Each structure stands twice: as structure tokens, then as C-alpha cells.
Simulated assay, not measured.
Amino acid sequence: MTDKPIANLAVIGLGMATKPHLDALAELRGKVNVSGVFNRTRAKAEAVSESFGFPVFDSIDAIAADPHTDGVIIATPPNQRADIVTKMAAAGKHILMEKPIERTLQAAKDIVTECESHDITLGIVFQHRLRQASLRLRALIEQGALGDLGLVRAEIPWWRDQAYYDVAGRGTYARDGGGVLISQAIHVMDLMLSLTGPAISVQALTATTRLHDMESEDFATAGIVFANGAVGSVVATTATYPGEQERLVLDGTKGTAILNGGQLTVTWRDGRTESVGDMSGTGGGADPMAFPCDWHRDVIEDFARAIHDKRQSSITGREALRVHALIEAMTRSSATKTTVEVENV
């Protein structure tokens, strides 16, 4: 514990995705202070206040005007973000935002530009990057231990029942911007790009299976060419009952690394093996929140320290645009039945 919190944060939006944030903030109490919470439904904010002891803000404007609030965690649906970001950035409040940044690549770029123009730290909650296994794999890649990367495979065989998509707006383009790609697979795809570097072209197929009644896709697959010369594939779905751990495989000239959920296994060409991490749940089954808050805690603490140290967070909005560009290219490739170049963002 520190004598004084490193940052005062407010939370905007208290839906299902906020649970690990609230649990993490409770664990960070004394290190990170919660200046208040806000939800469009006042009763929800009061329930959270009763459970966690956090104050309640009456409005977005009240948060923007509060001199004690250094930054905000925005966990609203994507279609509610632009106006909130504009107000917070103008008020000098730093922003940690749930994925995705927005519903389209252009809207996401607009938010990133808005924050940069006001010198605002913009962090994105891609918590898979901060798992112990992911950090170890990043270190191995930076050391060149895997050699030259040749093949990449991302598999996201998750499950969501129909009740999940029966919630108003969920899985629609108007609220979420799409389905499995932008709402679920985005986590693994962002982690993939953070390890491999950018993708330059894709050939994709997206579809809605007979297993769900929804507007957007619950299945997507693509062949990918990366800027470093590697090739790879993505297969993502929320139609695989009862859901399995996601898997990311990187095949290099010196060894193969497999991230299976939160566990990393490396098999070296010389016969050695290495394992790091555990098989903690990641929300791939019927309960999307079936995972610990540890990774969110680390993301929030990093964001708070970035505010205190006057630096960017470890997972920046600008870098997060890469996965938005890949998702847009996959969607366009499927619609046009052609190979599509990924925009260099």
C-alpha cells in the first residue's frame, strides 16, 4: 500500500464487462482510488456503491468537472463512447477503455486522434497481453529465441448461448460493430499482432451459423500474411459448445510456442521444453466472466502509473488500431470474396 493513491479513477458503464474491473479496483484499494461510478441506470450505480463502497456520480458532466478525478475507465457499449471520450479528453481526463475502441476502424481512429490532440493517455483493456505466459512469450520473441517466425495459428473455439445474443443490441452492427471478431476474438488477435507485428493481407470467410439467431457473424476464418514474412490463420467462433480454451501457436525456426489459455508450452528444436503459467479460465464457455480479475488489475495499475508518471500506458490506443484494421480487412474480404490488404495504421 502507498500513503497516497497513485491515481483517482472514475468508472463509466457498469454492465457485465465491468465485473473484473470492479473486483480489480477493490484489490487495488489504497493504491488506486475510485472517485466514483456512473451508469445510465442510477439503481445499478447505487447497487455497485453498496457492494464496493464507491461513490456515485450523477452525470458524465460531473465526472468531467471533478478536479479530483485523474482518469476514467469507460466500459460502455461501443456505440456510446464517442461523446464520452470527447468530454473527457477536453476536460483533461485520461482514459482506459474496454475493447473495442469503437465499432469501425474509422471511428476508432477518430477516438485515438481526439485523445492524442489533447495529450491524453489512452489505454485499451487487452488483458491477455499481461498474463504471465504472454509476457514470457514476448520476452522469448524479443530475444530471438524462437528464431524466424514462419507460421502463426490462432484458434478461438468459444461458446455463447442464444440468451447472450437475446440481450438488446448484442451482436448487432449498430451497438457492437459486429459479432465474434470484434467482441470476442479481438483479444487473441490483438495478442497475436502484439507478438508477430502487423498483418499485411487476408483472405477471409465470415458467417452466421444455424446455431445462433443474430445479425452479425458467429464464425470467422482467414488466411493471413504478416509483414515479417510469416503466414498464418485465424479460426474464431462462439458456436462451439460448451466452449474451449483459445490457442495461439507460433512456429519458429528454433522452436514452437503454444499459448493454450493462460499456459505457455515451448518445444525447442534441440529437444528442450518449457512451460509457464496455468490453465485459468478465459471466458470461453457459457459464462463470459469466468476468469480471474488479476489481468484487469495489472492493466488498471499500469494505466494509473502511466498517469502518475506522465507516460502512455503499456497498451495504447494507437497500437490497438492494428487489430481493428485486421478485423475490418477480414470483414471486407469475406464480403467481396477477395484477398484484401490490411490498412497500415
Rank of each mutant, 00 (worst) to 15 (best):
L9I: 15
V11P: 11
I12F: 00
I12V: 13
G13D: 02
G15N: 03
G15E: 10
M16V: 05
M16D: 06
M16P: 07
M16I: 13
A17P: 02
T18D: 06
P20M: 02
H21F: 14
D23F: 08
L25H: 01
L25W: 09
A26H: 14
E27F: 13
L28H: 04
L28P: 07
G30P: 01
K31C: 14
N33M: 13
N33S: 15
G36S: 12
V37C: 01
V37Y: 02
F38H: 14
R40D: 03
T41N: 15
A43Y: 00
A45V: 06
A47C: 09
E50C: 04
F52L: 07
P55S: 08
P55L: 00
P55C: 06
F57K: 04
S59Q: 02
S59P: 00
D61E: 15
D61C: 00
A62D: 11
I63G: 00
P67W: 06
H68R: 14
D70S: 13
I73Y: 00
I74Y: 01
A75I: 01
P77G: 05
P78L: 05
D83Q: 14
V85T: 08
M88G: 03
A90F: 10
A91Q: 09
G92C: 02
L96K: 01
M97T: 15
K99E: 04
P100D: 10
I101R: 10
E102P: 00
R103P: 02
T104Y: 11
T104S: 13
Q106C: 01
Q106R: 10
A108F: 05
A108G: 11
A108R: 08
D110K: 11
I111T: 09
V112Y: 03
T113S: 07
T113R: 05
T113L: 09
E114W: 03
C115F: 02
C115K: 03
E116W: 11
H118I: 00
D119V: 00
T121F: 08
G123S: 13
F126Q: 04
F126I: 13
H128C: 13
R129Y: 02
L130W: 07
